[in-house]
């Protein structure tokens, strides 16, 4: 009875694993397959043609560059804006903190497509459509709440006693900031960078309302390739897109333990 149950549990977990992994495996296999029709488990012929297509015809190199420039701009703006606000929320007496926090998180609670219409309307008037600045500003709408959320929980975890101890030992304000506060909050800032990067890199809804021929990002290109019916090329592009996502996945699992995100010193 006990043995049978164990087998049942393992089978169930295995099924769920297959259920989750298979779509990705299928994308990878399709991107290398030639003439994979009908009821076959694996293609008869393997090829690199679709990758060649992706680089030569679909111009993936330039698109990857676009995606990364936009993501870096979005991260820089979100953290630059978010840092001060997160500090104020975490460490200063702010009246109505909860309401303020829910206002900041509102863009993540309401479907992006609803305000994406308004953003594209405004950006048309400001000539921001099809510029790096425009697309990354649109991304900031989603990245900023995430950034503020992570950063404020990091700053909250900072122990006031450590800062006071540094000051008692004679450290100046700048020295305290660079040598005490910054090293302590670095894991949180890294976490914020990683999460804003994934948000911007994967963002599709706001991008499709603000992109143009010069600012096609990888998700938009994948969508266009699927829409045109080039599933093999779309699979090749997706496989390329998968690599950074997998790296982020490993980083989250390995390096970012939740206790590290909250400053590490809360219980001193």
């Amino acid at each position: 009875m006990h043995y049978a149950k164990k087998v049942l549990i393992i089978t169930f977990l295995l099924c769920i694993t297959i259920f989750i992994i298979s779509p990705f495996l299928m994308i990878i296999v399709t991107s290398f397959a030639r003439g994979w029709f009908g009821t076959q488990w694996m293609p008869q012929e393997w090829t690199f043609d679709w990758y060649q297509w992706a680089f030569q015809v679909a111009n993936i190199g330039a698109i990857l560059k676009n995606s990364i420039i936009i993501a870096v701009l979005a991260i820089a703006m979100s953290l630059f804006i978010g840092m001060a606000t997160a500090w104020a929320i975490a460490r200063r007496p702010v009246p109505g903190k909860e309401i303020l926090f829910s206002i900041i998180l509102l863009p993540r609670m309401i479907p992006p497509i609803t305000y994406a219409l308004g953003i594209s309307n405004i950006f048309y008037k400001l000539n921001l459509i099809d510029t790096y600045l425009g697309v990354s500003l649109a991304h900031v709408t989603l990245c900023l709440p995430f950034g503020i959320l992570i950063l404020s929980s990091t700053f909250e975890g900072l122990d006031q006693r450590i800062i006071e101890a540094a000051q008692v030992c004679g450290a100046s304000r700048w020295r305290t900031f660079f040598h005490v506060i910054l090293p302590l909050v670095m894991p949180g800032i890294l976490a914020a960078i990683i999460f804003t990067f994934t948000t911007s890199y994967n963002e599709f809804t706001l991008t499709i309302m603000t992109y143009g021929p010069h600012t096609v990002t990888l998700p938009v290109k994948t969508y266009l390739a699927i829409g045109d019916g080039y599933w093999e090329v779309a699979s090749a592009i997706s496989t390329i897109l998968l690599i950074p996502s997998l790296i982020v996945l490993i980083i989250i699992q390995r390096l970012l333990k939740p206790e590290k995100i909250v400053g590490g010193f809360k219980g001193v």
Binding site: S22, P23, F24, M26, I27, Y201, N202, F204, L218, P219, T222, Y223, I226, W231, A234, S235, S238, L241, L242, S245, L246, L249
Partner: peptide, 9 residues
Amino acid sequence: IPGLICALG
């Protein structure tokens, strides 16, 4: 992983 890739898969 981006929703679009998941959708394709």
